[in-house]
Design a protein around this nucleic acid. Structure first.
Lengths: 245, 245
DNA sequence: AACAAAAAACCACAAAATGTCACACAACAG
DNA sequence: CTGTTGTGTGACATTTTGTGGTTTTTTGTT
């Protein structure tokens, strides 16, 4: 069955059932197992290969929890006004933020994210500085020493950061060491650091330490965090903004 | 449906409905979802890609003389093999070249062009280094000192360059000083410099001097250049490849 | 500018398709 | 014999689709 999926990128349940002369329910059970083992993914009416098209993970991440991310982004966008200098990192929520400020003119934007850059280039009344170098294709961004060096040239009014996970007692964590390293470097630059994190980040466990909550001036999220994290926030002096979707 | 939108920049509801044999209302619903997730945007009577598309003047330049550029690109692509290190500049012909090498694996690509970078990121079995810094939004590329500094780190096997104009007696000229400056810097780096220029470049007059023809190892074009330029080429020791569309 | 006709978009509800669950049955190894 | 595993069946939940009616937008005409 996997070999059939290798040829055809995807297949319908009904077709597979007929192909193997078994009931559709049997196919569905097998598909469920394949999904839990990560080798295929279900879609309504059929199955498709998991790894099909390496672009999928990024697009998927952008659309995960889109409503919450959009609301958070819109809230932050209200604090941006003409002529500001912004540093925007490579998270998916940051991308929503970039879309949300598309109507503000005369900004200077520094970013290491290709998606953010693309969004900014849509309107050409902004100044754009791109932190390049070694590109992580999965993340569509550059994290290496060159990206850090370029970012360090600036003293942005505001830095917009996303994060992989927020854990009580630990602070901010991420999954990719390079990404974490880049973020550490930019914490010092901005006069104000705003962290955009939908509520799903509170449940996650990261694998690389990035920074303590005290480095963040504002945390913008869509649901009230668990009490231990609220305690950490007050201790760190971080302002908490909960955007009611 | 997204893949159909990738090819055609936009599409009408009625056409999509007929294409997939479903009712128009179903299409509208799907489009609404695509819009809330930010991947497409609705227009009256149809859908179009969200930020996806390039800016009108740019996409026009890319498609100008597309057949010739594609043929030139295909010819050059034949000289690329697995594992090479390539520097690709920001011209529109270079973009066609990048598309033409999409089937070659394991390349290391250095570029200062966002469009080239985007094309490379489509397949993630290449290594990508992006020369960033101050971004020229009209050209969708970075030309500044930072871009030069990063590019200088490399010694590519092959550099793929485009040019604004080729004049007899003068050599290579461009229209944007910054772009010219960047190109001057990269001429020294590559072991072999290949210039991609459709025949329209021979008639043009540029405004900024870039380099003499002697810096170019190969000139690939689609029609025989005027005799004075052929004389210059032989004098400079440049190989001339004329691709018969 | 005003107005009417036409096209397109939206909404709500019913119908169809698909997915899920629980249970019964058969094959089979220990 | 018994427990395990896989399969099929039917009831039920969920998702998706089509349809009719209504509202909004565009277009053409005066």
């Amino acid at each position: 069955m996997m070999s059939l999926l290798e040829e055809r990128q995807s297949c319908s349940i009904a077709e597979l059932a007929q192909r193997f002369s078994v009931s559709e329910e049997t196919i569905r059970r097998d598909v469920r197992r394949l999904e839990t083992s990560g080798r295929a993914r279900k879609v309504h009416g059929g199955v498709s290969l998991a790894g099909g098209g390496m672009e999928a993970p990024f697009v998927q991440r952008v659309n995960d929890n889109a409503a919450a991310k959009r609301a958070i982004a819109a809230h932050c966008a209200a604090m941006v006004c003409e002529g500001m200098t912004l540093l925007i990192d490579s998270g998916t929520t940051s991308l929503w933020f970039t879309r949300a400020i598309s109507h503000v003119h005369g900004l200077t934007i520094i970013t290491n994210s290709f998606e953010v850059a693309r969004e900014v280039m849509g309107r050409n009344d902004n100044r754009l500085f791109f932190a390049g170098g070694d590109v992580n294709i999965d993340y569509r961004a550059a994290f290496g020493a060159d990206a850090i060096a370029l970012s360090r040239r600036f003293a942005p009014d505001l830095a917009i950061l996303s994060i992989g996970a927020i854990e009580a007692g630990r602070g901010l964590l991420d999954f990719e060491p390079e990404e974490a390293f880049y973020k550490q470097a930019v914490f010092d630059l901005a006069r104000r650091v705003m962290l955009l994190a939908d509520a799903s980040k509170f449940g996650r466990e990261g694998s690389v330490f990035v920074a303590g909550l005290d480095r963040v001036h504002d945390l913008v999220t869509d649901r009230m965090p668990p009490p231990e994290i609220i305690a950490d926030l007050t201790r760190a002096g971080t302002d908490l903004h909960v955007v009611t979707g």
